[in-house]
């Protein structure tokens, strides 16, 4: 059960290999977290994350192979996960990947795949879990969006547009969940130094998985519906969204 300070005892991660997810769970393990289910595509990444979480003091960690693009199984996986944990206090949606988006290398298939992994897949999984959680009567869904989706940039417009879609979906879902006992918190990190961005040039105001995790825990405690990491990005993007397109497209990298 979640406590009044927003701290969960059980959590499921969709995209269980995510650095940000792992850093978040490690912080939550210092509080009340005792059981976790990690869902993801790579057994290796999941096992490694599970090992780390056990080391961080989570009593019960299970892993399960699940690809968010496998829509037809989402509801079944949600059902099994809730059965395993008893109640699911927190669903952390961290699936996604950052591919090359330059016009020269993309093709219809890679665009469709990137959008599926960053938007339609996570959206489908969120649907499955929120419907299951409605029956348990409560639950917090935390979804990793990105500032890339707040205003889509030329250099990563495929990823950015998928995150824009996911961000909008999460907002709508949160509105639809009013008074159900469930709620959605959207996390919008800037550039995060992680596995996903390995080898990429860092953008200004870049951050780390640990810092994003800290912002997520703070957001859970304050009951936030949107969390920016770092928080100053809220003001920066408050201005950037109004920049004329002509100027915005000059923004490099």
């Amino acid at each position: 059960m979640n406590d009044v300070t927003g701290m969960p005892q059980t959590a499921v991660v969709i995209g269980g290999g995510s650095d940000i997810a792992l850093a978040t769970l490690r912080l939550l393990a210092k509080r009340r977290l005792r059981a976790v289910v990690l869902l993801g595509r790579s057994a290796e990444a999941l096992n490694e994350a599970a090992e780390q979480l056990r080391g961080a003091g989570v009593e019960e960690v299970t892993t399960e192979i699940f690809d968010v693009n496998d829509f037809s199984h989402a509801s079944e996986v949600a059902e099994e996960t809730v059965a395993r944990l008893g109640t699911v206090d927190l669903v952390l949606v961290a699936a996604g990947f950052l591919g090359d988006a330059s016009l020269e290398v993309i093709d219809p298939e890679s665009v469709a795949h990137m959008i599926a992994t960053n938007f339609t897949g996570p959206a489908a999984a969120m649907t499955a879990f929120s419907q299951r959680l409605l029956r348990q009567g409560f639950g917090r869904i935390v979804v990793l969006s990105s500032v890339a989706g707040v205003r889509v940039r030329r250099s990563n417009f495929v990823y950015g547009s998928a995150k824009a879609g996911l961000d909008g979906f999460a907002q709508g879902l949160d509105d639809a969940l009013v008074k159900t006992g469930l709620s959605v918190m959207i996390v919008r990190p800037g550039f995060v130094h992680s596995k996903m961005t390995l080898g990429l040039k860092a953008a200004p105001m870049s951050t780390t998985p640990e810092a994003v995790a800290g912002a997520i825990v703070k957001g859970l405690e304050s009951g936030a519906s949107v969390v920016w990491a770092p928080s100053s990005l809220m003001w920066v993007f408050g201005i950037l969204v109004h920049l004329p397109r002509r100027l915005w497209r000059l923004v490099p990298g």
């Binding site: 979640n2 009044v4 409605l134 029956r135 009567g137 409560f138 639809a176 006992g181 009951g223």
Partner: peptide, 19 residues
């Protein structure tokens, strides 16, 4: 969307609603 005949309950502290 909300399961039938359920209500959201909170304690006097007005938080952590569950159905």
């Amino acid at each position: 969307m909300i399961p039938g005949d359920t209500d959201a309950f909170v304690g006097w502290g007005n938080n952590n609603a569950t159905r």
